[in-house]
Amino acid sequence: MKKTLILLGAALAFSSAFAQVSPVGLWRSIDDKTGEPKAEIRITDSGGVLTGRIEKTLKKDAKPTCEECRDERKGQAINGLEIIRGAKKTEGQDVWENGKILDPENGKEYTLRLAPIEGGQKLQVRGYIGPFFRTQTWVRVQ
């Protein structure tokens, strides 16, 4: 009985650790220019496709709605706003790519690359326009 419980516990611990090497979960975005926390974003997986929504803004001067957005998100509340769309796992790698990420501060959408780092406790978020990119490191919220 004890041996079974130990094995079960080890299997659960392993599966939890394995599941953490994924962008799925709650993240605190950190401004790459100021180092200050900006928002908490929840990333979910639906059939292998990732989406992410702002759960809570952390900036005191954050606008309440996305006035800079250029699509159906224009005028929507920042809290609850979908900012990540369509990212899919790259086969054989712990990288999710080819989606889009929205910067609600300027309304621009960028091609997206997500890569869990440090055992899944941080997330490298890279947005591209052509050969130019910007990278932020988000921190998993426990």
Rank of each mutant, 00 (worst) to 15 (best):
E72S: 14
T111M: 15
S16K: 05
I6M: 13
I30C: 09
T90G: 14
I6R: 14
R126H: 10
T135F: 06
W27G: 02
G35Q: 10
P104V: 07
T57L: 05
Q124K: 13
I41C: 01
V125F: 07
T57K: 01
K108D: 08
V95I: 06
D32Q: 05
G9V: 05
P37Q: 09
G99Y: 02
G119A: 03
S22C: 11
P23A: 07
E72P: 07
A19S: 02
G52Q: 11
S16N: 11
G130T: 06
R42F: 01
T135S: 12
A115R: 06
L5W: 01
K2C: 03
E55P: 07
D32P: 03
E91D: 14
K33E: 00
C66K: 03
G107F: 09
Q20K: 04
F14L: 09
D94Y: 04
A39N: 02
L112Q: 02
S16Q: 13
K122S: 03
W96Y: 15
G120F: 07
W96R: 00
E36Y: 01
E36W: 05
D61V: 00
R73E: 11
L5M: 11
P64V: 00
G47V: 10
K2P: 06
T51C: 03
E118H: 08
A17E: 02
R113G: 05
E68G: 13
L58Y: 08
L8E: 00
